[in-house]
């Protein structure tokens, strides 16, 4: 087993929190699906093709996590729940700098 690199908290739309530890540079989508976090489907396996891994990064973290790329923008902006800090979880890789990151989930994935 690799050493723990950090923790990320996924907050469901109803407020339920899921703390997930990470040990490598998996994407947030992989972390969520492999830890049974409800509300992230990741149907395309992380190719930014399906849009079922929408998350909203906590304001305090957006500078570190970075804003969405052009492809993410195109995929997310049609969602009725799109927010300023919306990202695709499959395009956001865990790294030591993100230890403690909090992301919120929309009510529905598109």
């Amino acid at each position: 087993m690799n050493a723990k690199m950090g923790t990320i908290t996924f907050i469901e739309h109803d407020g339920t929190e899921h703390e997930v530890e990470f040990v490598d540079g998996s994407s947030l989508m992989e972390l969520a699906t492999s830890n049974g976090v409800p509300g992230i489907d990741g149907d395309c396996g992380g190719e930014a093709s399906c849009g079922t891994c929408h998350v909203i990064v906590d304001d305090a973290w957006i500078a570190v996590a970075g804003t969405r790329s052009d492809v993410e923008r195109q995929m997310i902006e049609m969602s009725p729940e799109c927010a300023a800090n919306s990202r695709l979880a499959c395009q956001l890789k865990a790294c030591p700098d993100l230890d403690g990151l909090k992301v919120r989930l929309p009510e529905f994935q598109m």
Binding site: M75, M78, S79, M110
Partner: peptide, 11 residues
């Protein structure tokens, strides 16, 4: 190569 059109259509 039109992700936006796709998401628009889905909805």
């Amino acid at each position: 190569n039109r992700a936006q059109d796709f998401m628009f259509s889905k909805r």
